[in-house]
C-alpha cells in the first residue's frame, strides 16, 4: 500500500458519492433521486424490497449504468468523465449470480490482468476465504458458495478501492453465508469501502456501519 493509499484509508471524505441519481428505462422509473456517500473502511448496506432499484444503483456506482439525472462522483470527478475500464477496476461489482468465465479458478482470478503474479492471486483468494486448493479447479464445477467467493476474490485481484456486492448471500446455505459475512466485514476493516445490497437481515445486522433504504419505486436516499 502506498503512502497516498494509507492516507486515503484514514481520510474521512467519501470515495464515491451519488447525488440525486435517477434512472428511467422505457418510461419506468428504476431509481428516483438517490443521494448517498460511500466511505473507505465502512460497510454501507442498501435495503429495500425487490424492484426498489438496489441493483440499478450498484450498477450506477461503477458506471455500468449512467443516470438520467444526477451524478455519481469518484474522488470528486464525474464518473462519466473518467475511463470506464479504470473506474470499474477501482469500483468493483460482484453481481448476484456470479458468472464463472471459462477455465480454472486461477484463470478467473487472473482474467484481464497484465501480470497476475501467483502472490497476487493467493492474496486475493485468502482475502475472500477461498482455499488455495481450489485455484486449479474448473470454475464451472464450483458450488454456489464457492462461486460467490471466487467472484469476490476475482474483484479483489484488481486492488479496488470500493467493493459493490449485490445480494452476496442469496441462495447460499447458512455456513456459506456466514463465511461471506465474516469476509465482507474483514475486507472493510482493511480500509476497503463496501456497499452491500441485501435482503438478508442477519448479514445486514452483522456488517452494516450505515444503512440506506430504497422504498418501492426507487424513491429514497441513504
Amino acid at each position: 500500500m502506498t503512502t497516498a493509499d494509507a492516507d486515503a484509508t484514514t481520510s474521512p471524505g467519501p470515495v464515491v458519492v451519488a447525488e440525486a441519481v435517477a434512472v428511467r428505462q422505457g418510461g419506468r422509473e428504476l431509481l428516483r433521486e438517490v443521494t448517498l456517500d460511500v466511505r473507505r473502511g465502512r460497510v454501507l448496506v442498501l435495503r429495500g424490497p425487490s424492484g426498489a432499484g438496489k441493483s440499478t444503483l450498484l450498477r450506477c456506482l461503477n458506471g455500468l449504468v449512467w443516470p438520467d439525472a444526477g451524478v455519481v462522483r469518484l474522488d470528486g470527478a464525474d464518473l462519466r468523465s473518467l475511463p470506464a475500464p479504470a473506474v470499474r477496476r477501482r469500483v468493483a461489482l460482484v453481481s448476484q449470480t456470479p458468472v464463472m468465465l471459462p477455465g480454472t479458478v486461477a484463470d478467473n482470478l487472473a482474467y484481464g490482468l497484465a501480470s497476475p503474479g501467483p502472490d497476487r492471486l493467493t492474496r486475493a483468494a485468502a482475502a475472500a476465504a477461498l482455499p488455495s486448493a481450489l485455484l486449479d479447479r474448473d470454475a464451472a464445477e464450483l458450488s454456489g458458495g464457492e462461486r460467490a467467493r471466487v467472484a469476490i476474490a476475482r474483484a479483489l485481484t484488481r486492488d479496488p478501492e470500493v467493493l459493490l456486492l449485490d445480494e452476496p448471500t442469496a441462495a447460499l446455505d447458512a455456513d456459506a453465508a456466514a463465511t461471506i459475512t465474516t469476509t465482507v466485514r474483514a475486507l472493510a476493516d482493511t480500509g476497503l469501502a463496501v456497499v452491500v445490497a441485501t435482503h438478508d437481515d442477519t448479514l445486514a445486522a452483522a456488517i452494516a456501519d450505515e444503512v440506506a433504504t430504497l422504498p418501492t419505486g426507487g424513491r429514497g436516499a441513504g
Binding site: L64, R88, L93, S95, L101, R154, A155
Partner: peptide
Amino acid sequence: ADAIETRLALGDPIRD
C-alpha cells in the same frame, strides 16, 4: 448479457 456484464465489471473495454 450476464457474462458480458461480468467482463465489463472486471474492467474489460466494451469491445473485449
